[in-house]
Design a protein around this nucleic acid. Structure first.
Lengths: 146, 146
DNA sequence: CCCTAATCGTTGGTAACACTAACGATAGGT
DNA sequence: ACCTATCGTTAGTGTTACCAACGATTAGGG
Protein backbone atom coordinates (compact mmCIF):
# COMPACT_ATOMS: atom_id res chain seq x y z
CA UNK A 1 0.00 0.00 0.00
CA UNK A 2 2.31 2.68 -1.26
CA UNK A 3 1.40 6.28 -0.70
CA UNK A 4 0.97 7.89 -4.07
CA UNK A 5 0.46 11.37 -2.66
CA UNK A 6 3.29 13.82 -3.34
CA UNK A 7 5.37 14.99 -0.42
CA UNK A 8 4.36 18.61 -0.85
CA UNK A 9 0.72 17.75 -0.30
CA UNK A 10 1.25 15.20 2.42
CA UNK A 11 2.98 17.64 4.72
CA UNK A 12 0.47 20.44 4.22
CA UNK A 13 -1.41 21.30 7.40
CA UNK A 14 -4.18 22.96 5.43
CA UNK A 15 -4.67 19.76 3.45
CA UNK A 16 -4.70 17.57 6.54
CA UNK A 17 -7.26 19.85 8.11
CA UNK A 18 -9.41 19.66 5.00
CA UNK A 19 -9.23 15.89 4.79
CA UNK A 20 -9.95 15.42 8.47
CA UNK A 21 -12.86 17.85 8.37
CA UNK A 22 -14.28 16.22 5.26
CA UNK A 23 -14.15 12.77 6.75
CA UNK A 24 -15.58 13.95 10.04
CA UNK A 25 -18.36 15.80 8.29
CA UNK A 26 -19.27 12.79 6.24
CA UNK A 27 -19.54 10.54 9.25
CA UNK A 28 -21.52 13.12 11.21
CA UNK A 29 -23.92 13.84 8.38
CA UNK A 30 -24.56 10.17 7.77
CA UNK A 31 -25.31 9.71 11.45
CA UNK A 32 -27.68 12.67 11.64
CA UNK A 33 -29.35 11.62 8.41
CA UNK A 34 -30.52 8.57 10.34
CA UNK A 35 -32.86 10.93 12.18
CA UNK A 36 -33.65 13.08 9.14
CA UNK A 37 -31.47 15.94 10.28
CA UNK A 38 -28.33 17.81 9.29
CA UNK A 39 -25.82 19.55 11.47
CA UNK A 40 -27.60 22.87 11.18
CA UNK A 41 -30.71 21.39 12.70
CA UNK A 42 -28.67 20.07 15.57
CA UNK A 43 -26.97 23.40 16.08
CA UNK A 44 -30.28 25.26 16.28
CA UNK A 45 -31.96 22.75 18.57
CA UNK A 46 -28.94 22.66 20.90
CA UNK A 47 -28.82 26.45 21.02
CA UNK A 48 -32.50 26.71 21.84
CA UNK A 49 -32.19 24.08 24.55
CA UNK A 50 -29.26 25.79 26.22
CA UNK A 51 -30.16 29.46 25.83
CA UNK A 52 -33.93 29.25 25.62
CA UNK A 53 -36.23 30.84 23.07
CA UNK A 54 -34.53 33.27 20.72
CA UNK A 55 -35.00 35.35 17.60
CA UNK A 56 -33.59 34.12 14.36
CA UNK A 57 -30.90 36.80 14.48
CA UNK A 58 -29.79 35.51 17.88
CA UNK A 59 -29.75 31.98 16.55
CA UNK A 60 -27.59 33.17 13.70
CA UNK A 61 -25.11 34.77 16.10
CA UNK A 62 -24.95 31.76 18.37
CA UNK A 63 -24.64 29.05 15.75
CA UNK A 64 -22.60 30.87 13.12
CA UNK A 65 -25.22 30.04 10.49
CA UNK A 66 -25.98 32.97 8.22
CA UNK A 67 -29.25 34.65 8.96
CA UNK A 68 -30.42 34.02 5.42
CA UNK A 69 -29.88 30.30 5.90
CA UNK A 70 -31.54 30.17 9.29
CA UNK A 71 -34.87 30.68 7.56
CA UNK A 72 -34.91 27.32 5.83
CA UNK A 73 -33.63 25.52 8.91
CA UNK A 74 -36.39 26.98 11.09
CA UNK A 75 -38.92 26.20 8.36
CA UNK A 76 -37.87 22.57 8.38
CA UNK A 77 -37.74 22.27 12.15
CA UNK A 78 -41.17 23.90 12.41
CA UNK A 79 -42.60 21.57 9.77
CA UNK A 80 -41.33 18.66 11.86
CA UNK A 81 -42.95 20.15 14.95
CA UNK A 82 -39.62 20.50 16.71
CA UNK A 83 -39.77 24.28 17.10
CA UNK A 84 -42.46 26.92 17.04
CA UNK A 85 -42.14 30.24 15.28
CA UNK A 86 -44.26 33.03 16.71
CA UNK A 87 -44.11 36.79 16.27
CA UNK A 88 -42.62 38.84 19.08
CA UNK A 89 -45.30 41.29 20.33
CA UNK A 90 -42.62 43.49 21.86
CA UNK A 91 -40.73 43.89 18.60
CA UNK A 92 -42.78 43.02 15.59
CA UNK A 93 -39.72 42.63 13.37
CA UNK A 94 -38.66 39.54 15.25
CA UNK A 95 -39.87 35.98 15.41
CA UNK A 96 -39.52 34.07 18.63
CA UNK A 97 -38.36 30.51 18.10
CA UNK A 98 -39.22 28.05 20.83
CA UNK A 99 -38.19 24.43 21.13
CA UNK A 100 -41.05 21.98 21.62
CA UNK A 101 -41.21 18.71 23.50
CA UNK A 102 -40.81 16.93 20.19
CA UNK A 103 -37.78 19.08 19.57
CA UNK A 104 -36.21 18.11 22.88
CA UNK A 105 -36.81 14.47 22.13
CA UNK A 106 -35.20 14.88 18.72
CA UNK A 107 -32.29 16.72 20.32
CA UNK A 108 -31.48 13.87 22.66
CA UNK A 109 -31.71 11.44 19.79
CA UNK A 110 -29.29 13.59 17.80
CA UNK A 111 -27.03 13.87 20.84
CA UNK A 112 -26.82 10.12 20.95
CA UNK A 113 -26.15 9.75 17.24
CA UNK A 114 -23.58 12.50 17.35
CA UNK A 115 -21.70 11.00 20.24
CA UNK A 116 -21.40 7.73 18.33
CA UNK A 117 -20.23 9.55 15.19
CA UNK A 118 -17.71 11.50 17.21
CA UNK A 119 -16.35 8.30 18.71
CA UNK A 120 -16.08 6.73 15.31
CA UNK A 121 -14.13 9.65 13.90
CA UNK A 122 -11.80 9.89 16.89
CA UNK A 123 -11.34 6.16 17.18
CA UNK A 124 -7.70 6.24 15.96
CA UNK A 125 -6.76 8.59 18.83
CA UNK A 126 -6.29 7.88 22.52
CA UNK A 127 -8.22 9.90 25.10
CA UNK A 128 -5.38 12.31 25.86
CA UNK A 129 -4.73 12.70 22.15
CA UNK A 130 -8.34 13.68 21.59
CA UNK A 131 -8.10 16.27 24.32
CA UNK A 132 -4.89 17.61 22.89
CA UNK A 133 -6.39 17.79 19.40
CA UNK A 134 -9.34 19.70 20.79
CA UNK A 135 -7.05 22.09 22.58
CA UNK A 136 -4.93 22.76 19.51
CA UNK A 137 -7.94 23.28 17.26
CA UNK A 138 -9.54 25.63 19.76
CA UNK A 139 -6.32 27.61 19.93
CA UNK A 140 -6.21 27.71 16.15
CA UNK A 141 -9.68 29.14 15.69
CA UNK A 142 -9.96 31.17 18.88
CA UNK A 143 -10.96 34.73 18.20
CA UNK A 144 -12.44 34.32 14.75
CA UNK A 145 -14.83 31.47 15.41
CA UNK A 146 -18.55 31.97 15.88
CA UNK B 1 -16.38 39.20 24.99
CA UNK B 2 -18.68 36.47 26.21
CA UNK B 3 -18.91 33.27 24.23
CA UNK B 4 -22.44 32.88 23.01
CA UNK B 5 -21.88 29.44 21.53
CA UNK B 6 -23.65 26.62 23.36
CA UNK B 7 -21.52 24.11 25.21
CA UNK B 8 -22.68 21.21 23.08
CA UNK B 9 -21.31 22.84 19.96
CA UNK B 10 -18.17 24.23 21.52
CA UNK B 11 -16.94 20.83 22.63
CA UNK B 12 -17.64 19.12 19.33
CA UNK B 13 -14.49 17.91 17.64
CA UNK B 14 -16.26 17.73 14.30
CA UNK B 15 -17.24 21.37 14.61
CA UNK B 16 -13.75 22.47 15.58
CA UNK B 17 -12.34 20.59 12.64
CA UNK B 18 -14.84 22.26 10.34
CA UNK B 19 -14.10 25.74 11.63
CA UNK B 20 -10.36 25.25 11.47
CA UNK B 21 -10.53 23.81 7.98
CA UNK B 22 -12.77 26.62 6.78
CA UNK B 23 -10.47 29.29 8.10
CA UNK B 24 -7.38 27.55 6.75
CA UNK B 25 -9.01 27.08 3.37
CA UNK B 26 -9.97 30.71 3.17
CA UNK B 27 -6.46 31.93 3.92
CA UNK B 28 -4.92 29.46 1.48
CA UNK B 29 -7.32 30.28 -1.32
CA UNK B 30 -6.79 34.00 -0.89
CA UNK B 31 -3.06 33.47 -1.07
CA UNK B 32 -3.21 31.31 -4.18
CA UNK B 33 -5.66 33.71 -5.80
CA UNK B 34 -2.79 36.18 -5.80
CA UNK B 35 -1.27 34.02 -8.53
CA UNK B 36 -4.58 33.22 -10.24
CA UNK B 37 -4.70 29.70 -8.87
CA UNK B 38 -6.71 27.55 -6.51
CA UNK B 39 -5.55 24.61 -4.44
CA UNK B 40 -6.47 22.11 -7.13
CA UNK B 41 -4.06 23.75 -9.52
CA UNK B 42 -1.35 23.53 -6.92
CA UNK B 43 -2.11 19.89 -6.23
CA UNK B 44 -1.88 18.96 -9.90
CA UNK B 45 1.30 20.94 -10.55
CA UNK B 46 2.97 19.53 -7.45
CA UNK B 47 2.00 15.99 -8.42
CA UNK B 48 3.33 16.41 -11.94
CA UNK B 49 6.58 17.87 -10.64
CA UNK B 50 7.15 15.05 -8.19
CA UNK B 51 5.92 12.04 -10.16
CA UNK B 52 6.44 13.25 -13.72
CA UNK B 53 3.96 13.17 -16.60
CA UNK B 54 0.77 11.27 -15.92
CA UNK B 55 -2.66 10.48 -17.23
CA UNK B 56 -5.66 12.29 -15.79
CA UNK B 57 -6.75 9.14 -14.01
CA UNK B 58 -3.38 8.94 -12.28
CA UNK B 59 -3.62 12.58 -11.32
CA UNK B 60 -7.02 11.87 -9.85
CA UNK B 61 -5.64 9.01 -7.76
CA UNK B 62 -2.67 10.99 -6.53
CA UNK B 63 -4.44 14.22 -5.67
CA UNK B 64 -7.78 12.89 -4.51
CA UNK B 65 -9.58 15.14 -6.97
CA UNK B 66 -12.43 13.38 -8.75
CA UNK B 67 -11.66 12.41 -12.28
CA UNK B 68 -14.61 14.41 -13.52
CA UNK B 69 -13.18 17.51 -11.87
CA UNK B 70 -9.66 17.00 -13.14
CA UNK B 71 -10.86 17.93 -16.62
CA UNK B 72 -11.51 21.58 -15.83
CA UNK B 73 -8.31 21.92 -13.82
CA UNK B 74 -6.20 20.57 -16.67
CA UNK B 75 -8.10 22.79 -19.10
CA UNK B 76 -7.24 25.85 -17.06
CA UNK B 77 -3.63 24.87 -16.51
CA UNK B 78 -3.26 24.17 -20.23
CA UNK B 79 -4.85 27.50 -21.14
CA UNK B 80 -2.28 29.17 -18.89
CA UNK B 81 0.50 27.24 -20.59
CA UNK B 82 1.49 25.50 -17.37
CA UNK B 83 0.81 21.97 -18.57
CA UNK B 84 0.45 20.27 -21.93
CA UNK B 85 -2.19 17.70 -22.75
CA UNK B 86 -1.30 15.22 -25.44
CA UNK B 87 -2.84 11.90 -26.42
CA UNK B 88 -1.02 8.75 -25.36
CA UNK B 89 -0.08 6.81 -28.53
CA UNK B 90 0.29 3.62 -26.49
CA UNK B 91 -3.24 3.82 -25.07
CA UNK B 92 -5.49 6.08 -27.04
CA UNK B 93 -7.99 6.39 -24.19
CA UNK B 94 -5.52 8.34 -22.13
CA UNK B 95 -4.12 11.83 -22.24
CA UNK B 96 -0.60 12.46 -21.08
CA UNK B 97 -0.27 15.60 -18.97
CA UNK B 98 3.15 17.19 -18.84
CA UNK B 99 4.28 20.15 -16.77
CA UNK B 100 5.94 22.96 -18.73
CA UNK B 101 8.66 25.39 -17.74
CA UNK B 102 5.98 27.98 -17.13
CA UNK B 103 4.26 25.45 -14.91
CA UNK B 104 7.38 24.90 -12.86
CA UNK B 105 7.81 28.61 -12.42
CA UNK B 106 4.19 28.91 -11.31
CA UNK B 107 4.67 25.99 -8.93
CA UNK B 108 7.53 27.66 -7.10
CA UNK B 109 5.53 30.86 -6.87
CA UNK B 110 2.63 28.90 -5.39
CA UNK B 111 5.02 27.13 -3.03
CA UNK B 112 6.11 30.49 -1.70
CA UNK B 113 2.58 31.81 -1.32
CA UNK B 114 1.45 28.61 0.32
CA UNK B 115 4.23 28.63 2.86
CA UNK B 116 3.25 32.14 3.91
CA UNK B 117 -0.42 31.16 4.16
CA UNK B 118 0.48 28.12 6.19
CA UNK B 119 2.46 30.26 8.61
CA UNK B 120 -0.39 32.69 8.93
CA UNK B 121 -2.86 29.95 9.78
CA UNK B 122 -0.57 28.22 12.25
CA UNK B 123 0.59 31.46 13.84
CA UNK B 124 -1.31 30.85 17.13
CA UNK B 125 0.62 27.59 17.64
CA UNK B 126 4.22 27.01 18.70
CA UNK B 127 6.51 24.87 16.57
CA UNK B 128 6.06 21.70 18.65
CA UNK B 129 2.32 22.30 18.72
CA UNK B 130 2.24 22.48 14.93
CA UNK B 131 4.11 19.22 14.70
CA UNK B 132 1.79 17.60 17.19
CA UNK B 133 -1.27 18.84 15.32
CA UNK B 134 0.13 17.44 12.09
CA UNK B 135 0.77 14.12 13.75
CA UNK B 136 -2.72 13.89 15.23
CA UNK B 137 -4.40 14.86 11.97
CA UNK B 138 -2.34 12.36 10.02
CA UNK B 139 -3.29 9.67 12.50
CA UNK B 140 -6.92 10.68 12.15
CA UNK B 141 -7.07 10.41 8.38
CA UNK B 142 -4.53 7.65 7.82
CA UNK B 143 -5.95 4.82 5.81
CA UNK B 144 -8.88 6.53 4.18
CA UNK B 145 -7.15 9.58 2.73
CA UNK B 146 -6.20 9.87 -0.92
C1' DC C 1 -11.09 -14.20 -32.70
C1' DC C 2 -15.01 -12.34 -30.75
C1' DC C 3 -17.63 -10.67 -27.07
C1' DT C 4 -17.96 -8.78 -22.69
C1' DA C 5 -16.17 -6.07 -19.18
C1' DA C 6 -13.35 -2.56 -17.69
C1' DT C 7 -11.04 1.97 -18.21
C1' DC C 8 -10.44 6.81 -19.83
C1' DG C 9 -11.86 11.41 -20.62
C1' DT C 10 -15.79 14.08 -20.75
C1' DT C 11 -20.39 16.27 -19.94
C1' DG C 12 -24.02 17.39 -17.06
C1' DG C 13 -26.20 17.40 -12.87
C1' DT C 14 -26.96 17.37 -7.59
C1' DA C 15 -26.57 18.80 -2.84
C1' DA C 16 -24.58 21.21 0.96
C1' DC C 17 -22.36 25.35 2.40
C1' DA C 18 -20.72 29.95 2.92
C1' DC C 19 -21.81 34.17 1.64
C1' DT C 20 -23.87 38.71 -0.73
C1' DA C 21 -27.42 41.86 -2.16
C1' DA C 22 -31.62 43.74 -1.77
C1' DC C 23 -36.47 44.17 -0.18
C1' DG C 24 -40.41 45.56 2.90
C1' DA C 25 -41.58 46.04 7.57
C1' DT C 26 -40.49 47.79 11.80
C1' DA C 27 -37.97 50.11 15.58
C1' DG C 28 -34.72 53.62 17.65
C1' DG C 29 -32.19 57.96 17.97
C1' DT C 30 -32.16 62.81 17.46
C1' DA D 1 -40.54 63.76 11.44
C1' DC D 2 -36.39 61.90 9.48
C1' DC D 3 -32.66 59.07 9.05
C1' DT D 4 -30.63 54.93 10.22
C1' DA D 5 -30.35 50.33 11.71
C1' DT D 6 -32.36 45.82 12.41
C1' DC D 7 -35.24 41.72 11.30
C1' DG D 8 -36.89 38.15 8.42
C1' DT D 9 -37.01 36.82 3.82
C1' DT D 10 -36.02 35.88 -1.11
C1' DA D 11 -32.95 35.22 -4.64
C1' DG D 12 -28.71 34.29 -6.38
C1' DT D 13 -23.35 33.22 -6.59
C1' DG D 14 -19.23 30.29 -6.33
C1' DT D 15 -16.86 26.39 -4.43
C1' DT D 16 -16.50 21.73 -3.41
C1' DA D 17 -17.50 16.83 -3.37
C1' DC D 18 -19.66 13.51 -5.76
C1' DC D 19 -22.72 10.53 -9.08
C1' DA D 20 -24.46 8.86 -13.57
C1' DA D 21 -23.90 8.11 -18.13
C1' DC D 22 -21.75 8.56 -22.65
C1' DG D 23 -18.56 7.31 -26.63
C1' DA D 24 -14.14 5.69 -27.47
C1' DT D 25 -10.89 2.45 -26.57
C1' DT D 26 -8.50 -1.49 -24.51
C1' DA D 27 -8.05 -6.02 -22.04
C1' DG D 28 -9.53 -10.56 -20.74
C1' DG D 29 -12.07 -15.00 -21.14
C1' DG D 30 -13.97 -18.53 -23.78
Amino acid sequence: MIDETPERLRSLHSRLLGLAAMHSDRVVNEALAGAGARKWHYAVLATLAEFGAASQAQLSDRTGIYRSDIVAVVNELAAAGQVERSPNPGDRRQNIITITTTGRRQLSRLDRLLRAAQDEVLEPLTRPERDELGRLLRKLVSGRSA
